[in-house]
């Protein structure tokens, strides 16, 4: 600092070496100074902090209000035990169905150009933008039309367990499709093209190259579908009804408790759902971070820079092997 300040200038001629060009022509004080970054980060953290605090406060309020006593009472209730089982079962079935449909639809939308694609794209978004009650109502009306009505009469779909799964499936699949499409969009088609030149058919290239590389996307799509299904309420209420021991999934339990004024019970069931969702999220995160599931994802992040210095010895090895 002192040698840059104006007072240091007289000392410069005394030095035997010629002064650097900078000090001769340019002004010696710093000409421009970027504004401090502090306020920017402060703004970011205040906004983020409010939202995070809101979420945490909501959960804490639930815990405080319901208390552990109600929690025990709820868990002991056979109705709730049924609802837990039905929720877990229906969510898992829905997730499998949703991913099963989402993978081909996502791949088609990502890779294939066809007439009317924009229309199909819009249709695929309908379950996301439609009010949940309307979805349930539409399903109900659909199963009152002649061909499906016969099916309904025979199998008993509406107001029974198949309706629960169908209602969950209608919404969850739309989210899974979006996720899978984004996954395939991000994936370069070059790997597939190379596989084709190596003699693969389209389906071989899909199964051997595309699907293994989309594992993270598959996992995300499945998690999303599962979580959406767990919270699904509106369509189930309209299409499957809220019959105890029959179509009572956990959100329906919350509704039933609220409707008889048992707010503590409703909150306790809500906490149970939160707990289940958190457990699933954590398990998926751990699996996703696990070595067996996605080695290259972590590996790439870790190896980029440390690998560069390691290049030199490898290159010598290479040279020796082919000369």
């Amino acid at each position: 600092m002192p040698d840059v300040s104006p007072s240091a200038r007289p000392a410069a001629p005394a030095s035997p070496r010629p002064a650097p060009a900078v000090s001769a022509d340019l002004p010696l004080k710093r000409p421009f100074r970027a504004k401090a970054d502090g306020p920017f980060y402060l703004g970011l953290s205040i906004l983020a902090g409010f939202y995070v605090a809101l979420i945490v406060a909501m959960l804490l309020a639930d815990v405080y209000y319901a208390g552990l006593g109600h929690f025990g009472r709820i868990l002991a209730s056979p109705n709730i035990q049924f609802a837990i089982k039905l929720s877990l079962l229906s969510c898992c079935v829905t997730t499998i169905l949703a991913v099963w449909v989402a993978v081909p639809v996502g791949y088609l939308m990502s890779r294939v150009k066809f007439r009317g694609k924009a229309f199909v794209d819009a249709v695929l978004d309908i379950p996301i933008v439609l009010p949940p009650l309307v979805i349930g109502l539409s399903l109900l009306i659909l199963f009152r039309q002649t061909p499906l009505r016969a099916l309904d009469n025979y199998f008993g779909i509406a107001f029974d367990k198949p309706a629960v799964i169908l209602a969950q499936f209608a919404v969850a699949t739309a989210f899974a499709v979006r996720t899978m499409r984004a996954t395939f969009d991000e994936m370069s088609p070059r790997q597939e093209q190379v596989a084709l030149t190596l003699g693969c058919s389209r389906s071989q290239a899909f199964w051997t190259i595309v699907l293994p590389e989309s594992r993270m996307g598959l996992l995300t799509a499945a998690t999303l579908a599962w979580a959406r299904s767990l919270g699904e309420f509106g369509p189930i209420l309209v299409f499957a009804g809220s019959t105890r021991q029959r179509t009572e999934v956990l959100p329906v339990s919350v509704h039933l408790h609220l409707s008889i004024g048992d707010i503590e019970g409703a909150v306790a069931v809500s906490l149970l759902m939160i707990l289940m969702a958190v457990v699933v999220l954590v398990v998926v995160r751990v699996l996703a971070g696990g070595d067996w599931l996605d080695r290259s994802f972590r590996g790439r992040r870790r190896s980029r820079s440390p690998d560069a210095p390691g290049d030199a010895p490898l290159k010598e090895g290479e040279g020796a092997s082919h000369d």
């Binding site: 070059r190 790997q191 093209q193 190379v194 596989a195 030149t197 190259i209 293994p212 590389e213």
Partner: peptide, 14 residues
């Protein structure tokens, strides 16, 4: 019967 090396190699990540 063409061997193809695309830009950037396009190796199979897994």
């Amino acid at each position: 019967g063409i061997g193809y090396v695309p830009q950037d190699g396009a190796l199979f990540r897994r």
